[in-house]
Amino acid sequence: MEQLLNDFSPGLFVMQTVLLIGLIFLLVKFAWKPILNSLEDREKGIQDALDAAESAKKEMQNITADSESLLKEARAERESLLKEARELKEKILADAKEEAQKEGDKMIAKAQATIESEKKAAVADIKAQVATLSIDIAEKVIKDELSNKSKQQKLVDDMLGDIKLN
């Protein structure tokens, strides 16, 4: 212990203290501060870059998911559109068919009605002509037959018999 204390040099102690203070001051100012700052900046930069890459990846995933859902939606849309179109087509076809049927029926009915009325008119006309002709014939016959009483009677009978036919 005594020898150690004897070896201890106060002068060297003072020199070391002074030099160390100077060294710490100089190094902190000119070396450690800028070094640590730039190291931290670099680490921060790397961290930021990593974060950015991570977020970009996430975004990418989102976009992929979005596009996929969009695609799905579009497919569904197309599907439904096609279905609708098919339905529409069928409906139109059915409608047209029905319409045509109806129209046809109507036309047929109309034609039938016309035919009926024509027939009726024709029958009425024929009846009228027959009546006129009958009257004319009757007139002539009457004129002719009325000269003879028996003949007159016979004629009337015949004619009556004829009319019954119709």
Binding site: L27, F30, A31, W32, P34, I35, S38, L39
Partner: peptide
Amino acid sequence: GLLMFIWFAGLARQYK
């Protein structure tokens, strides 16, 4: 001290 100053101040300068 001189060596350390040259080395580390040099390192600090490199980062600029």
